[in-house]
Simulated scan of single mutants.
Amino acid sequence: FNEMMANSLTTANYVRLSEMLKEEHNVMMLNPLSNDLAAMRQSMLFSGLEAVSYNINRRSFDLKLFEFGKTYHKLESGFQENKHLSLFVSGNRLQESWAKPQKTSDFFLFKGYVNTILSRLGIEKTQNQPMTSDVFAEGIAIVSGNETLVEFGSVKKSILKEFDIKQEVLYADFNWNLVLKLISNKIRFADIPKYPEVRRDLALLVDEDVTFDSIYKVARQSEKSLLKDINLFDVYSGNNLPEGKKSYAVSFTIQDTSKTLTDDQIDKIMRKLTQNLESELGASLR
């Protein structure tokens, strides 16, 4: 990764690209040099996309960028500054080589980068949750308790179009204030679970308007104690599927810390999951 340092001053018009940003929260300059430098940024995304666009326009297509910076907000309670770490990945994952075929950086490689950062910092007790955002085409939030540590995903094409970017861009926004709170100098140990976890995969055929968020919620309601993790590892839409349908490949990790699960217990959980997904979301197995 290469570090970038964007200007905290930006155009006030960027708030119009996301409903999560409010114009009244802009911190405006009293005597700006230009309209493009009239406000303090409320998001790390748009200044980062400026850097991505700048590099692509100069034929540097394969990018891995990070930035430590702040966002600025004018709230009713006063001015607020938040610390962030942002990541941007776009283009091929490796330099061109005769030894290996080119492969584009994708969501799952990017997810590995995000998880590695948290792991290296010793932040382990987290959960993945699907999220709905007007800046991500597909996004996931990693949470600790009730607070969001990081949001990441693939930036929507409608936003990339504003910066004349035609290739996919993956973006992560770490809440660095929270990360710093969770980092501890103490080394903690936990017993390795004596009993194995079990993974089961389902290839689900769903309507195009069904989100992973819906699948996640139904699964959590179906099994609250033994279902440890739910992960979306593939999305497909296109040929060989009925019109108006898409395919989600979802993995379910099941574990009982007090005993080994039997095949009958696992099958019972998966039958309940499948039935609830079918009855509530109209999902069917491929």
Rank of each mutant, 00 (worst) to 15 (best):
N57E: 12
K245V: 09
V210H: 00
R188Q: 10
I266E: 05
M44D: 11
K194D: 07
I269A: 01
S97M: 05
I56W: 12
S184A: 09
R93S: 13
P130K: 13
D201A: 04
F152W: 10
S119A: 06
E23A: 05
I117G: 09
L277E: 00
F107R: 01
K161S: 11
S86R: 02
T257G: 06
S53D: 13
V150L: 06
P130F: 10
F189G: 14
K111L: 09
L21K: 05
L241G: 11
M40H: 11
I254K: 07
G153I: 09
V143D: 12
Y171T: 02
V218A: 01
K246G: 12
D263C: 00
E168M: 05
Y171Q: 07
W98V: 05
E19I: 07
L202W: 02
L170K: 15
M28C: 12
G78Q: 12
Y248S: 04
L180P: 06
E147F: 01
K83N: 14
E168Q: 14
D263L: 08
S284G: 08
G69M: 02
D234N: 15
F233P: 02
I165Q: 01
A141K: 11
Q255Y: 03
L37H: 14
N231A: 07
F163E: 06
P130D: 05
G153M: 13
I230F: 03
T104N: 09
V169R: 07
A12H: 12
F79E: 15
D213Q: 04
N92Y: 12
K181T: 10
K268A: 09
H25R: 11
L261W: 02
T116E: 09
I215M: 01
A219Q: 05
D134Q: 11
N146L: 10
S222T: 15
V235T: 13
S154G: 03
E197Q: 14
F233G: 04
K181I: 01
P130A: 04
V114D: 06
D256K: 02
D134A: 13
E243T: 15
P196Q: 10
N175V: 02
T104P: 01
G139E: 14
E278K: 06
Q255N: 09
I142L: 11
N57T: 06
D207F: 07
Y72T: 03
L277M: 10
L149R: 04
D173K: 07
L170H: 12
D201V: 14
I269P: 00
R199E: 05
I183H: 08
N146M: 10
M5N: 08
R271Q: 13
E151W: 00
N146P: 01
K228V: 08
L232M: 07
T211Q: 14
E162R: 14
E138C: 08
E76C: 03
